[in-house]
Simulated assay, not measured.
Amino acid sequence: MEDRIITLAQLNAGEAGMPLGSEMWMYEGPLTHRDTDFLPVRFDALIGIAVHHGSAVFSIDGKEYRLEPNTVGILRPYCYLSNFSTLNGEPIDVSIIGCSEKVEDNMADTLSEIMPLVIKLHIDPVVKMQPGGVEALRPYLDLLRRMAVNEPRQAQTSRKAGCIFKAAIYEIIERRMPDETSGLSGRSREITAHFFYLLGKYFQEHRDVEFYATSLQISAKHLSTVLKATSGKTAGDWIELYVVREAKILLSNSSLRIKEIASRLHFSSQAFFGKYFRNITGMSPSDYRR
């Protein structure tokens, strides 16, 4: 059993969907459980799924979520997709956009403007839209589809498609249903969004709160105070959650030896990894794997 990763290049080279240059990919149409026989899997891309008709249940990082009409699912790069099933076996009609980490990083310069969505996606990857919200994305999807048909592999296609995708993200923010992140103050929201952005990129290499606090130019204490107020967890809690969740996925769904998992998660030794894992979960990695 391997920890399988499907790359954006593989999506663009496959029969399903259409390339949008080398950094983006698009699929529109029906999706059933038979189309997801390749699961479990990770994608090295940011994946956006707009649902037009039908319902489905899927699991991300071991937790189950539901896609319904007028919702948008956004999957972070390298999250673990382990299940997908449609309601009563009926197809779900979707539009799917895949973006490379390069395209995602290009959006980081507007992180302050898309903060509510960044925070939301680290708590729940499904965005419920106001009535007609997904339908309002049609003009952006139409532009992307025409681009995929007329200039699928031109040098500037991904750059132009990335701008359209960014505009669609703004539309999602404007038309999403209010949730627990909507009332956060500007500065607290900014700190929280930037923390989650950094955490998603660096949790395997950096487990110390000080790294994230220094990157945000605030104290570790202030970072944890803000996160506790905005998300219900401290910075240390979130770091532990991400590290242990990844460890559990690798222990349960890969043939990697425990020593290799410890190395992948940047622990200095298998013993240190085992102690860290036991302190948080109450069991050793080998016991959990059984």
Rank of each mutant, 00 (worst) to 15 (best):
T157Y: 09
K160M: 13
E101F: 01
V209C: 05
E113Q: 12
E101P: 01
N83Q: 11
F267E: 13
R138V: 11
P152A: 02
M26R: 12
G162Q: 04
P178D: 07
G200K: 02
S85E: 15
Y78D: 02
L241F: 08
G282P: 12
R4M: 15
E68C: 03
R175A: 09
A16R: 15
L198H: 08
A235E: 11
E135M: 09
C99G: 12
Q204R: 08
K166M: 00
M26S: 02
V51Y: 06
S59K: 09
E2Q: 10
D142E: 13
G54A: 03
L11P: 04
L75F: 09
E171V: 02
P152K: 00
H266T: 01
N88Y: 02
I92F: 00
V244W: 02
N12Q: 11
D142M: 11
R257L: 09
E171N: 06
M18P: 03
I92T: 14
E190T: 13
E90L: 14
A262R: 04
V41P: 14
L141K: 07
E171Q: 14
L111I: 11
T36A: 12
V127A: 06
R278Q: 09
E2A: 12
W25F: 09
R138L: 07
T192A: 13
G232M: 06
I96E: 00
A235R: 10
K63P: 00
D142W: 13
S286G: 08
G21L: 07
E90G: 10
G54V: 05
G183W: 07
C79R: 01
A161C: 05
L20W: 06
I191D: 01
A168H: 10
L75A: 04
P139Q: 01
A108S: 14
L241P: 01
D124P: 03
C79H: 02
S252G: 04
L117Q: 10
L67N: 04
T181V: 15
K166C: 03
N83K: 02
A50T: 14
A235H: 12
S158W: 11
N70G: 05
R290S: 06
P139E: 00
F273P: 14
G183K: 05
Y212K: 05
A45N: 05
L141Y: 06
G162A: 01
I164A: 02
E210Y: 14
V149P: 10
S224C: 06
I258G: 07
L144V: 06
I169E: 11
S215V: 01
G21Y: 09
E135Q: 15
N279Q: 12
F195V: 04
Y27Q: 05
P131V: 00
M283A: 09
T157G: 10
V126N: 05
N70T: 12
P285H: 00
V127M: 03
V126E: 09
S284A: 14
I172Y: 03
E190S: 07
P91S: 14
A148V: 06
K221I: 11
A45W: 01
M1D: 01
A271C: 08
P77H: 05
H222Y: 13
D61N: 13
K120P: 09
D3K: 13
N88H: 08
P69H: 13
S95M: 08
R159M: 00
S219R: 11
L251Y: 04
R290V: 10
A45Y: 02
S55Q: 11
S82D: 03
L184P: 02
W25P: 12
V226A: 04
